[in-house]
Design a protein around this nucleic acid. Sequence first.
DNA 1: ATTATTTTTTAGACTCATCTAAATTTATTT
DNA 2: AAATAAATTTAGATGAGTCTAAAAAATAAT
Lengths: 222, 222
Amino acid sequence: MTISLTEENYIKAIFYKSNSNNIGVSTNSLSNHLKNKASSVTDMLKKLADKKLIRYKKYKGVLLTLKGEKIAINIIRKHRLWEVFLMEKLNFSWDQVHDIAEQLEHIKSEELIKRLDSFLGKPTLDPHGDPIPDEKGKFNETKSIPLNECKILKEIIFIGVKNHTISFLKYLTSIGLGIGDKFKIEAINDFDNSYQIKVKKNNLVFISNDLASNILIKIKNE
Amino acid sequence: MTISLTEENYIKAIFYKSNSNNIGVSTNSLSNHLKNKASSVTDMLKKLADKKLIRYKKYKGVLLTLKGEKIAINIIRKHRLWEVFLMEKLNFSWDQVHDIAEQLEHIKSEELIKRLDSFLGKPTLDPHGDPIPDEKGKFNETKSIPLNECKILKEIIFIGVKNHTISFLKYLTSIGLGIGDKFKIEAINDFDNSYQIKVKKNNLVFISNDLASNILIKIKNE
DNA sequence: ATTATTTTTTAGACTCATCTAAATTTATTT
DNA sequence: AAATAAATTTAGATGAGTCTAAAAAATAAT
């Protein structure tokens, strides 16, 4: 069975919109995410259901089948491996890689991905700190928490972001924060739950609670 | 102006079918090459002419405009750079790279190609010995001749192939012949113009004239 | 529990790239 | 140069993926 580029993008969107609870993804949320009209989404959902890639009941939203999930995870694996390639080998900055990886993820060749994976040293995290599933589709879960759930003044490792917008990524770069960096929480302001952190020898940086909720961290030595 | 993947493939096909003499490429030859019906080709030619990518007169065949040629050369550049990447970095064999490069050549990002080029050390020949045009579209012409035009017993450098079919490439590999290899013409049989060559310490290999016409060589120290 | 609102689906139309079948033009024979 | 063959184009149709506008179903509000 062949799966078109468009179908792949729908499958990926459904995967991203799926919550761990088994509630179907709504037509509208896919419509927003894919920037297509809801009616177009409905059409495609019928097609994907025919192919047994999703379970779809009219008006009830949609869930991936095992087959569909496998495909989604494989696309994500390809996307993230290419992102690693673009940053590590071609020295792109992390806010530049997404659009290119969005294209590369659709290249069809299992052998290519296998070799790319080896070439990159079988990485388990992409440049945004997101886990890269292995050949079997298994995610190496690195338990991270958003910075705003950390209420103690400790040494922190920055391991990922929740918000992937380019402006956010650029902002982090501008304050000297990159994946893997260590920083220290110097103060937590209880009036607005904002943070003051110190990255390396840089000055103190002020982080709003909202911002902090999009920064994924691990507490050092835990 | 956006150019679709399909349009890119037509432009590339027209480029490959163009002879240095200014004779238009026929609808039928494109039809064969692209494995589309002639009527489909006609439709697309009209479209490409509207976009000023080709010059097209009904029943008279087709030529690329400067704009079209630029695009064709850029696609070829991308194709060949990716082939180098696949062989040099991912250790694919030269008969495996074409199909994957056929997909990769359509990835849209000038920056990507610029960086890939640098990463690969700005190569001027691809793994099949075909020249890689530079950013400006200039081909580094390495004047090569087909083996069957060489009538003297000399040391030879194998620099490319004319026939790119997988079976031919596999055959060359099987007799121990790879791009850049040196070999010696041991004998030229005048009854059928076939060749006997010696690759490294291997046994003598028999090469028919037909085969020889598809092997591009340079005579050593010339 | 009716009404109003939002979400989703259906119906019909459009573009892109393709096809088949028929018509037309060009090239080749005799 | 007329007849035949080959190449090319036109006309009309199809499938994929999208759209708008209208209908139907689900959800929320009074």
